[in-house]
Nucleic acid binder design. Structure first.
Length: 557
RNA sequence: UGCCGGGUCGUCUAAUGGUAGGACAACGCCCUUUGGAGGCGUCUGCGGAGGUUCGAAUCCUCCCUCGGCAGCCA
């Protein structure tokens, strides 16, 4: 636990801004942030960065944090997304207490404020259609043309706007626009649209409305109504800030400060909701929570912990420069976390049978194994050992490269927690494939006895044949084969065909038969795994590989 | 040809006129009954050119370069 000080330590440029505001008493000591997702998809790790940033600020400065759904577009939003977002935000540990809000609950208020703007002569109803508005907006280098409806009387605007609301017009027939400056070098200020007509049922408001506010009009109002002090968003809204400020200034309302930071980009994946939706809809992945997805739900199912996600977002920092973060930083965070909390177990992914020829036929020994060498309080367990065991196929090589420390013909290796064995004979099938090993063991080399005079380079994991439990294991690789798939319009062609490998004949030690859904376990020498929540049928266990162990072994030439 | 915002090790990020540092990655070595973990070490960076200054990543000028913006999406 850290000692909280009046002025939290400087973490990034946003903390500096807030520090200054506190110094100058700009907000009378208040710090109030929010996370404002649109419920049009599942949250991803980029959202986690924003959530931890906003929630972290509220914690560090003893302020408040709101969860607010920016549900202003009924054609894209669904209740399923609202539910998943609430679950994910809670799972991340961002405590919004009772402060969960919906922009749609402010629609009446927003409507009244729009009327107010019309009365000030700062907004007008425009009859131009979409094409006409676009063509009259001008270009990046040329000013736009003023709408012929720009100078309607206040009375006419009031009347028309009211009739827009009551459903007298068809979709797209009219809009309400702010009257700002069609020649502004900032295109967002060229009489932006505040309301559009959409005859569509809203997931929370039903058929109450057929006009819906646009982001630019709505967002500042939402922040203002909730008395947000620091409205933190991503860089692409930088050009919208003058408009955010314009609306709030004209209305003379509480005026939060918008601050932009660079969104998270991770290599070898995509982060836009549109692309993630396409992966789901077109069945390139199983669902939003597919363990290969960068979604919060996907990462959770994959075995990531919220603590690791938080640690990751803190380690990458917050700044204004566009960045492409290497996935290895994320992997470091999860390994670091799981190393401390995951119980160890023996699991053989691709079994190779060994018969220990000098071990008694019917004998079963119980060997003691530590559950976590990092944490003695996690205790010990018992492993059965017998004449027939399985080891990893990759732990035996007939013609090993230099530096190979595992089993080779005539070579010796230690079986973790058990004995040192020697490989006497490799049995092959008709195609020359090694299918079984005959080995002998040295009785005085039992782990923990200290009676062994032998030294071996390698220690390998194993499971006892008769007690092992058969499970399914899913190994995941990066979803895309290139670092930045989003930069290519043929991004789907870079999907990794080997992003998941399903192994049905893996064998694990018997203690794992009691493993619970979501439990994190390290398969020694293999990686961190997590009991899957979806694929398991009946008694069958399915393990997702969260991440491999760091592997410093490189065959020398 | 417009406006806005950026450019510091391979990656991410500090330094706020005073020794360019950390983390990840990589590579060595040590240790190890997980080729895990841990320990030690090495490597590599201020986009460029001028200027101000005793002193510049930091201030000024110019250049180069990258990103965003022309939805009735957010």
């Amino acid at each position: 636990m850290e000692i909280s000080s009046a002025s939290p330590k400087k973490k990034n440029f946003i903390y500096e801004i807030i520090d200054d505001d506190l110094q100058t008493n700009k907000w009378k000591g208040d710090v109030h942030t929010r996370f404002p997702p649109e419920p049009n998809g599942y949250l991803h790790i980029g959202h986690a960065k924003s959530i931890f940033l906003n929630y972290g600020i509220s914690e560090d400065f003893h302020g408040k944090f709101n969860l607010r759904f920016d549900d202003t577009n009924p054609s894209k939003e669904e209740q399923e997304y609202v539910d998943s977002i609430i679950e994910d935000v809670k799972w991340l540990g961002a405590d919004f207490e009772k402060r969960i809000f919906f922009a749609s609950d402010y629609f009446d208020q927003m409507y009244q404020l729009a009327v107010e703007l019309i009365k000030k002569g700062k907004a007008y109803v425009c009859d131009l259609n979409g094409d006409e508005i676009r063509s009259s907006r001008g270009t990046l280098t040329e000013p736009g043309k003023e709408s012929p409806f720009r100078n309607r009387s206040i009375e006419e605007n009031l009347n028309l706007f009211q009739r827009m609301r009551t459903g007298e017009f068809r979709d797209g027939e009219k809009t309400l626009r702010a009257k700002i400056d069609m020649a502004s070098p900032n295109i967002n200020l060229r009489d932006p649209i505040m309301y559009r007509i959409v005859h569509e049922e809203h997931q929370r408001q039903g058929k109450k409305w057929c006009i819906y506010p646009t982001y630019d009009w709505a967002h500042g109002l939402e922040d203002s109504i909730e008395k947000i002090t620091h409205s933190i968003c991503t860089l692409e809204f930088e050009n919208h800030r003058p408009l955010y400020d314009w609306f709030l200034n004209e209305l003379g309302m509480h005026h939060p400060q918008q601050i932009e930071f660079a969104r998270l980009n991770l290599n070898y994946t995509v982060m836009s909701k549109r692309k993630l939706l396409q992966l789901v809809k077109d069945n390139y992945v199983d669902d939003w929570d597919d363990p290969r997805m960068p979604t919060i739900s996907g990462l959770r199912r994959r075995g990531y912990t919220s603590e690791a996600l938080k640690d990751f977002t803190e380690s990458i920092g917050v700044a204004k420069r566009d960045a492409m973060t290497d996935i290895s930083l994320l992997e470091f965070s999860i390994r670091n976390d799981l190393n401390k909390r995951a119980q160890r177990a023996m699991a053989v992914l691709r079994p190779l049978k060994i018969v220990i020829t000098n071990y008694p036929e019917d004998q079963v020994e119980e060997l003691e194994a530590v559950n976590n060498p990092e944490d003695a309080s996690m205790g010990k367990r018992v492993l059965p050992f017998s004449r027939e065991i399985f080891i990893e196929q990759t732990d035996f090589m007939e013609n090993p490269p230099k530096g190979f420390h595992r089993l080779i013909p005539g070579g010796e290796v230690r079986l973790r927690y058990a004995y040192i064995i020697r490989c006497d004979e490799a049995i092959k099938n008709e195609t020359g494939e090694v299918v079984e090993l005959y080995c002998s063991f040295y009785p005085d080399t039992k782990s923990g006895t200290g009676t062994s005079t032998k030294k071996v380079k390698g220690t390998i994991h194993w499971v006892s044949a008769s007690q092992a439990v058969s499970v399914e294991v899913r190994l995941y690789e990066r979803l895309f084969t290139i670092e930045n798939p989003a930069s290519d319009e043929n991004w789907l062609s870079f999907l990794n065909p080997n992003s998941v490998e399903i192994i049905t004949g893996a064998l694990v030690e018997p203690s794992l038969s009691k493993a619970k859904i979501g439990e994190h376990i390290q398969f020694e020498r293999n990686g961190y795994f997590c009991v899957d929540s979806k694929y398991a049928i009946n008694e069958r266990l399915v393990f997702n590989r969260t991440v491999t162990l760091k592997d410093s072994w490189r065959p020398k030439k």
